[in-house]
Amino acid sequence: MFKIFKYSFFDLMRSRWSYVYFLFYLILGFVLLFLNNDVSKAVITLMNVIIILVPLISTIFGIMYYYNSKEFTELLLAQPIRRSSIFMGQFLGVSGSLLLSLVLGLGIPFVSYGLFKSTAIFDFSLLLVVGSFLTIIFTALSFNIAISNENKIKGFGYAVLLWLFMAVIYDGLFLMSLIVFEEYPLDTFSIAATMFNPIDLSRTLILLKLDISALLGYTGAVFKGFFGTNLGLMTSLLLLILWALIPIWRLIIKSQKKDF
């Protein structure tokens, strides 16, 4: 697995898009710090960007890499290598290179601004943790879509739809159902609904930590009331881990049964 990871990772490191992604975060970090002049505020703005953008980039990157490396995969399948090692290696290669761009791209501006002297260091590291989880989750989901769809156009369509659903449509449906069923107790429903969307979950997680009640919203408030800040943090982190593990597990199962 490590060898496949190495080849995928260095292959991606040579690609232009990794640098574009890295430079984007680098510029975003510097601009936000320059405009806000405050690490905590920059972290909040950054959260809003990361929560939407990281899933989008990870999904697109993941699906493109899978389809583009089809030849590479076929070559590897005839070699004495485990199937799960091939796919896990490629998955780790993609998510690894995306993580590196994210962590370095955001880390450099914040560290040079004096992150280590600021109190926001924990908030910032939580943001990076959430960003990493979203990268892993959405890369894994896009690999799942790609392995189940031979047709590139279809796979690409499903991947974009997945992102659109999780990032935009889900919240809309959620809010609508809150309005429609406002006469009923909705606490349990809204907690459950948050858990089924990694983007919502990440948002709640960060807002719980930052403790900004104005931005917390209905779900956040219910979450906080239900779990309290610390238990809420633990629960949502645990759920994010589950969100990462389930698609990876399915990827391994699916790869064992596929014909090439």
């Binding site: 292959d11 040579r14 490396s69 089809k70 030849e71 590479f72 076929e74 070559l75 005839a78 070699q79 004495p80 290598i81 485990r82 199937r83 064992q256």
Partner: peptide, 22 residues
């Protein structure tokens, strides 16, 4: 079935040479 190490004992020439282009 479900094994992989036996492929060490096979030399395989695929039909269409699809190689990673880069």
């Amino acid at each position: 079935k479900k094994k992989w190490r036996y492929r060490e004992r096979i030399q395989y020439l695929p039909q269409i040479a699809n190689f990673p282009g880069n």
